[in-house]
Amino acid sequence: MQSKSHYQIVISGVGGQGVLFITRLLAEAAIEKGLPVFTSETHGMAQRGGTVISHLKVGEFASPLISPGQADGLIALKAESLDQHGGYLKPGGWAAVNVPAPLTMPAAATPFYLDADRLAREMDNPRSVNLIMLGFTLSSAQRGGFGHGSLHCSLNDIEAVLENRLKGKTNRLQSSLRALKAGADSTTAT
């Protein structure tokens, strides 16, 4: 059940972390639900270890970009994204942040912290930070942490998208689903 029809989410990190991949998963989940969706991405030069940001807009929008102060949420695959891209958040917006220890957060935003780097290392899959953070974001939303109906899709929806995308690639699918679940099973650090 959805309480609204517009979602604006910023996903940011560093080239190579898989920002575009999880953006794609969220977009495909929107399509599966018949919702209009836009993404706007960083390609090219910035991907050589530079900052990568993507804008995901679900609902009836015309513009591909999110305005400062209007994003419902931010998925930050690097803690520094909060400083760089936190300005996109609307008052009370949520931020799922990959960071070893909680940061000082502006009172107006609702933070969720997870040390996804550590989790990924423990799972011996250092390239899975993106999916761990996505799982963490989805489960935090489902637990009601972001406010009711705050994401356009659920953990199950993303699992279905992954199963569809990685059909026939059993190993990759299994390790992706494991990473997603590891994130989903984690709760925010305080």
Binding site: V14, G15, M45, A46, Q47, R48, G49, G50, T51, S67, P68, G69, Q70, A79, E80, L82, D83, Q84, G86, G87, Y88, L89, K90, P91, G93, L103, T104, M105, P106, A108, A109
Partner: peptide, 22 residues
Amino acid sequence: APSQPPDLSDVPEIPQRPPNLC
């Protein structure tokens, strides 16, 4: 009235991360 982004002055400032050779 432009929407007000949250005040981020408390968030520690982190140096820019320009693209780099791999």
